[in-house]
Every structure is written in C-alpha cells, then in structure tokens.
Design a protein around this nucleic acid. Structure first.
Length: 803
DNA sequence: ATAGGGTTAG
C-alpha cells in the first residue's frame, strides 16, 4: 500500500499538453475567477476525445480490467492498487476505478493525489472522475483543493454536467460554504431532484434548518415530488429548528408517499420528534415499527437521553438487547453517556467506559468527548482531564467539554488556564466555549479580564445571545462592576427568567437588597414567573442586606404562592438570615428540623454565624459536621483557629494547626488585587514586592495614623504578652487589602471607586479600617470576596457590618 | 462504472 501510495506524491504541477491545448485562451489561474467563467464549447470536444480513447484502450486489457473490478468489488484495495501499477493506464476508466475505491475507503487525500497523477500522466479526467474527486475534497475538508478542482473542471468544460454540479453543491455545504453551494445551484440551467435534495441537505448540514424547509417547499412548488432523501433531509431540518408542526406535516407526507416503512425515514421521524422535545410521540411511533435496526434503537435511546429521561434510555437499551438481540455499538455508548451523567452516578458511566475499551472503540474523538462530558457532569473532573489529556485528536467540542467539566466542578483557575491553551492551539472559541467559561471569569477573574472577554463576545457578534448576555451581566457584577452589569441588562432585547435572576443576584451580592426586591416586582409586572433560582437570588439578597423579615416572607411565599419546594440552597440562605438576626439557637433548631440533609454549606452558614456571635461551642459543633462531610475543608479549620486566637486560646490554635499539618492542608494564602487604568496589582500580607513599595507604605502609615484610634482596642480583650507577639505575625495593619487600598488611593483616578478583589473574606480589623479610610479620604472603596461585595463610603459599609 | 440519505459529543 505505502509503496503504491508513495507514487501519488511525486506528481508535478498540472501542465500537460492536452490541457494547455484546450485552454490555450485562458491564462487566469485564480480559482474563484475561473469558476465564474464557462467553457461550454470545449466540453463537447473533450467528450468526443475521451470516447475515442476509451474505445481504443478498452480492447487491449479487458481481462486486466475485469480483475481490477473484481478486486475493487471484493474490497481488496491493495490488490487493486498493485494491479493498477502494472496496467497500461491511458484510459480514464481505470483511474476512475482507483479513485473511486480510494474515496469509498476514505483515502481522500490519496484519491486527490491520484487525480493529479492522472493529469501528470496526461490522462484526461472525465465526467465520472470529477464526482469522486469532489467527494474526496469534501472528505479531506479542503476548500482550497475543492476550489482548485472546481476551476479545473470549468476549464475542462464540465461545469454544466448535472452529476458534477450536484456533487459540488454537496461538497461546498460539507465544507461549510453554503453560499458557494447556492451559487452552483443558482447557476444550474436544469435542476433535477438530486440538485434540490443536495441543497436541502446542504442547508441542514450547516445548521440552517429554516432555509432547508424553504428550499423543500420551493422544490414542491416547481412540481417535483419529494423522495425519501428529500423527506429525510427536511425532517433533519425540523429537528434542527425544533419545528414540530412542520415535522408532523412531513411525517404525514412520508406516509402518503409510501416511505413509512423505510427504516431511514423512520429513524429521522423518531429523531425529529425527540429533538422537538416530544419523546412521547417518538416512542409511540417507535412502538409501531416492526423491524428495528441498531440505528433506530440508538435514535430512541438518544431521544430519551436528550429529553432527560435517563432511566427510560436504559430500559430501551435492555429491550434492544432482549427483543432484537442487538449488541450496543459505539453510537449506543455515546448516546447512553449523557444518561449516566444525568443520574450523576459514576458506576454506569465507568461500566460503559470499560465496555468501550474492551470493544476496541477507543480512541475515538466523539466517544472520548462524551466521556469527558460524562465524568465532568458526574463531578470527576480529574477523570475527565485524564481522558482529555490522552486524546490523540481534539476538536473545539472536546475543548468545550473539558472547560465545562472544570467550571461545573468549581475548578475555575484550571478552566481559565485551559481557555488560554485553547487560544494557543489556534482554536477559535464559539458560543458554547464562551457560555462555559464566563462563570469561571465571574468567580475568579479580574474586571480587566472580564472586559476583555466581553470585548471578544462583541467581536463574535454574540451580544444578542440571551444566554451569553445573562452570564455577562452576572460576570460584571461578580467582577465588581455593578453599573456595567445593569447597563447590559437594561440593553438586552430579550430578557428571560435567567436574566432577571442574574440581575437580582447582582444587586444582592453588592448588598443592595432593596433594589433586588424592586427588580423582583418589575419582573412579575413583566409577566415572568419566578423559579427556584429566583428565590435563591432573593433570599441571598435579603441575607446579605440584613432584610430578615422579607427573607422569611419570601421563604414562606415561594411554596405557598408559587408552588416551589425550597431546596437546600434556600435553606442555606435562611440559616444565614437566622445567623444574622443573632438567633443562633433558632438557626441550629432550623437545621435540625429541615427536611433535607444538611450539607457542608449549611453547617458553614452556622459556623460563620457562630463566629460573628462569638459562640465557640456552636462553632465547634458546626465545624465537626463540616469536617465529617469535607475532611479537607481548609476554610473551616482556619476560621475555627481564628476564633480560638481571638479568644486567646492558643493551645487550641496549635491543636488546629497540628490537625491541618497532619492532613497536609495549608492555609490558603490571602491576597488582594487592585486595578487601575492600565494595570492590575496583586498584594499578599506584608507585601514588599511592589515597585512603589516605599510609597505605598508611606501612604499606609499616614492613613494608619489617621484612623488608628480604635481599631484594635476591642479585639485584645484578654491581653497577655505572648498574645502580642503572636498577633504581630498576622498584624492586620499590613494585610494585603490595606496595601491594595493604599495603592488604589494613589493610582486610581479621582472619582472612580477603588476596586479590590480578594480570594478570602476580609477580616474584621480591615473591614473597620476600610470604613475609616473611606471616611478620611472621601473615596469610595469596593472590596469583593468570593461571596459578596462591600461598598465602603463615608465611613459606612453596604453590608451593615455583617458578612 | 458516475452524483444526492439516517443515528453521535457541547
């Protein structure tokens, strides 16, 4: 094989005598321009010549041709190639046979190479050669090659051959250039059913379902009758656009035309109903089919997965094996993986993974991508990464799946890193990539980076995408720019429930609960019904803004007035609200009596409530619960240690430190970032790495003197000399947030707020200091942590001193 | 001896 194929690569650029003679008048080699020109006259000459050649050579090696065909028909491509090399090859027919067998075995590049070699050996490509070569150009995804062949066939006078033109229509569509398909189609003087079908399926393959349906109607209007191909393609169009009504009509048409027993038509019907969210129709129709093949079963299994009925898809699998004795294939596996993800259990997914390994299905791009997706959705981003890293081939879809796997599991940094790698590998992110990555930007990115990704969204023209705009609104809010978040929300043409939830949450995390509540009424006035997430946004807004009574009201109203059963997140917000009202016993009782099993997040709420109310006993209890659920919860250890430290219980601090060390846990290094017009600066506690360090510390000293009078006095209730030494090591005077604020004071232009983002929550001392700094400097200071934003203004904070 | 079809990942 390799020896024969090697010959293909030694061809010279096309310059054969014959071609030169035919095209003596032509000098233009730009394929685009050449395609526009037609040489109908030379086409007749060509055909006459090729017929003569055919007649003279066919006599010579008839027996060789017979064996060549028998090799090809029995699938022995290598034998055919071997024989071919020893034949006289002046007849295009033998070349056509070879090019066809290469094309049908997906040796696309080799088929194209043989086409060039044919020209080099001065054998003229005929009307049969081009359809194969065109198909190979489509198969090898080479638009440039396709256009070269196209311009060549125009020069050779084949541009009115219907077979060739129909192939071109399909090729351009497969290469994503539907406009070029349209041009070929429109230039046709005569169109047959195949031309129309190619155009319809072309529209489907580029995702333009509506155009496909219009084309289908036009075809019927000119008096052509739909065949099974027209039916299958237009059903595909209905699946794309979820146009159930048209789908039903075409289904009816298929029955009237007698195609209802065609298994491919049946499969398309099942798929269409499933994609139009009517898996019940799909199933009813599916039940009536007596002879089902694996593809049809797969469509039904996939339909259940698509409509989030995972258990039904497994039932369907079982029936397929029992009723029809069919063995699951690769597509079965791919279709079942989303069902595994939906039940969020690792075992079924792993079983299928193992099965595909044993069957030798791997490596396979689509299957591996489905596995990445499944492991990601089941919460095993490390297993997803393992698959992803071992993939020999990746496309944008695989990258999107891996990015989503990280984001869904809270690995935002990893997701952003992967997003950078994606650029480096020269992939262009699409709407899915952006949708997946935006939440990661919201969680950990700086405003500057957020603005960059927003710029990219504008460049990609995705601003009208409601889903993406929703994420952008939330991202701006989470990056600290509430104004821009609101501006984008106000500018959205189509606001859905998620848009409203996002903007309510935006004001919530910035501590403006009253505005959240106002937005909630506006939303209801617009006729939009709140959902469970709306109440998460609202309850969180109430808890952050300290609106205890409203919080309770919404909590009882969600079930009473809207029939929404509170979920664990709603309960969490209520624990926060109770903690805020200093009613710790009630909070504890609420947890004990709630109908859902408390999660670490619930106990975490009680823990921070205990901290605020300096109730060490309850904090210990909460911490015990948290650590029984998440033994590696660093934040929990640190918070407890800080409480012990504040109480002067240094032995307990040491005990906690020891526990952490034993588990290999390290305290998260706190840092603060601040952005000015041109740059971003990151500070850690006692940071001295900044180029303007001495200036920053000078500012800090001046500020500290101005505000120092009552910062520490209340926190040193049980003073001991040892305490002073220990305290000094974490001296809040030099905490990162203050360094960031001081740098902001000298580098952020007046009138703009100083925006600081932290990876951990602000400490009490720094919170007090920030309030005072805002007072003495008259600047607005905004400090965000993973949960919320503090707006410091005129000595007050939007959080009302509870966080 | 030639072109046009179904099921799959986000």
């Amino acid at each position: 094989m390799s020896a024969t194929l090697a010959l293909c690569y030694s061809h010279k650029p096309i310059s054969s005598e014959n071609i030169r003679r035919v095209n003596s008048a032509k000098t233009n080699t730009n394929p685009d321009l050449v395609i526009k020109q037609r040489l109908t006259k030379s086409s007749r000459i060509n055909r006459k010549q090729s017929k003569i050649v055919k007649f003279s050579t066919r006599q010579g090696n008839l027996s060789e041709i017979r064996s060549l065909l028998s090799y090809v028909n029995s699938g022995s491509m290598e034998d055919a190639l071997h024989l071919f090399e020893n034949m006289t090859k002046c007849d295009p027919f033998v070349w056509n046979v070879i090019i066809r067998v290469l094309t049908s075995n997906e040796y696309f590049q080799e088929a194209i190479d043989f086409y060039y070699r044919m020209q080099f050996e001065r054998v003229r490509a005929d009307n049969f050669t081009y359809p194969f070569v065109i198909k190979s150009c489509a198969g090898s995804c080479s638009l440039i090659e396709g256009q070269k062949v196209h311009s060549k066939l125009i020069k050779a006078g084949f541009d009115l051959d219907l077979y060739i033109c129909n192939s071109l229509i399909a090729m351009y569509a497969k290469l994503g250039c539907i406009e070029l398909s349209e041009r070929v189609f429109e230039d046709l003087l005569v169109r047959d059913l195949v031309s129309w079908n190619s155009m319809i399926s072309g529209y489907v393959s580029v995702g333009k379902g509506w155009n496909a349906l219009v084309c289908f109607q036009e075809m019927l209007a000119v008096g052509l009758r739909a065949d099974r191909f027209s039916i299958i393609s237009s059903l595909g169009a209905c699946s794309l656009d979820c146009t159930l009504q048209y789908g039903k009509e075409i289904h009816g048409q298929a029955i009237r035309s007698g195609f209802e027993s065609d298994v491919m038509v049946q499969t398309s019907v099942v798929d269409m109903y499933a994609k139009c969210s009517r898996v019940d129709y799909a199933d009813t129709f599916f039940q009536t089919i007596s002879r089902k093949n694996i593809v049809l079963w797969n469509a039904m299994i996939g339909g259940y997965a698509l409509n989030r009925q995972p258990l039904e898809s497994f039932v369907c699998l079982k029936k397929m094996q029992e009723d029809d004795n069919l063995t699951p294939d690769m597509v079965t596996a791919i279709n079942l993986l989303p069902s595994c993800a939906q039940i969020r259990a690792l075992f079924p997914g792993k079983t299928i993974h193992g099965l595909t390994i044993r069957k030798g299905f791997l490596p396979h791009l689509v299957l591996e991508t489905a596995l990445v997706d499944m492991y990601g959705k089941c919460g095993y981003q490390k297993l997803a990464r393992k698959i992803f890293s071992h993939m020999s081939e990746r496309n944008l879809v695989s990258w999107n799946a891996m990015i989503a796997a990280y984001v869904q599991n809270g690995c935002n940094r990893e997701a952003l890193e992967l997003f950078q790698d994606l650029w480096r590998e020269h992939f262009n992110p699409d709407a899915t990539t952006i949708t997946s990555i935006l939440p990661a930007y919201a969680e950990v990115a700086l405003l500057r980076e957020g603005k960059q990704i927003h710029g990219y969204v504008i460049k990609l023209n995705l601003c009208s995408n409601t889903f993406i705009s929703n994420s952008i609104v939330y991202m701006y809010a989470k990056c600290g720019d509430l104004k821009t978040a609101r501006k984008i929300f106000d500018g959205m043409l189509f606001k859905d429930i998620i848009s409203w939830n996002a903007v309510i949450m935006a004001y919530g995390i910035h501590g403006f609960g009253e505005i959240s509540i106002k937005l909630f009424s506006e939303m209801k006035e617009e006729g939009i019904k709140p959902n469970a997430s709306t109440f998460v946004s609202l309850l969180l807004s109430c808890s952050i803004a300290g609106m205890i009574d409203q919080g309770w009201e919404y909590f009882s109203s969600m079930k009473k007035d809207y029939g929404i059963e509170p979920g664990i997140e709603h309960y969490g917000c209520i624990v926060d609200i109770l903690g805020r009202s200093a009613n710790l016993d009630l909070a504890k009782r609420f947890i004990d009596e709630m109908p859902l099993a408390p999660t670490a997040r619930i106990w975490g709420s009680l823990l921070s409530a205990s901290r605020h109310n300096r109730n060490i006993e309850l904090a210990e209890l909460a911490a015990e619960h948290i650590l029984s659920l998440e033994h590696d919860n660093t934040g929990c250890y640190v918070l407890l240690a800080n409480m012990y430290a504040e109480a002067g219980r240094w032995e307990d601090v040491e005990r906690i430190k020891h526990l952490m060390k034993n588990q290999g846990l390290e305290k998260t290094t706190g840092y603060s970032t601040v952005e000015n017009n041109s740059r971003t600066f990151k500070f850690v506690n006692q940071d001295r790495s900044h180029i303007d360090t001495s200036l920053i510390y000078d500012v800090l000293n001046i500020i500290s003197r101005k505000i120092s009078e009552d910062i520490y006095i209340h926190s040193l209730t049980k003073f001991r000399p040892l305490d002073l030494i220990r305290k000094r090591s974490t001296a809040p005077e030099c905490h990162s947030v203050r360094l960031a604020i001081c740098f902001g004071l000298i580098s952020v232009s007046l009138g703009n707020p100083i925006l600081v983002r932290k990876n951990i929550r602000i400490c009490e001392a720094c919170h007090g200091a920030a309030k005072k700094i805002s007072e003495v400097t008259g600047r607005e200071i905004v400090v965000g942590d993973p949960k919320m934003y503090h707006h410091f203004r005129n000595g007050r904070c939007s959080c009302g001193d509870y966080w």
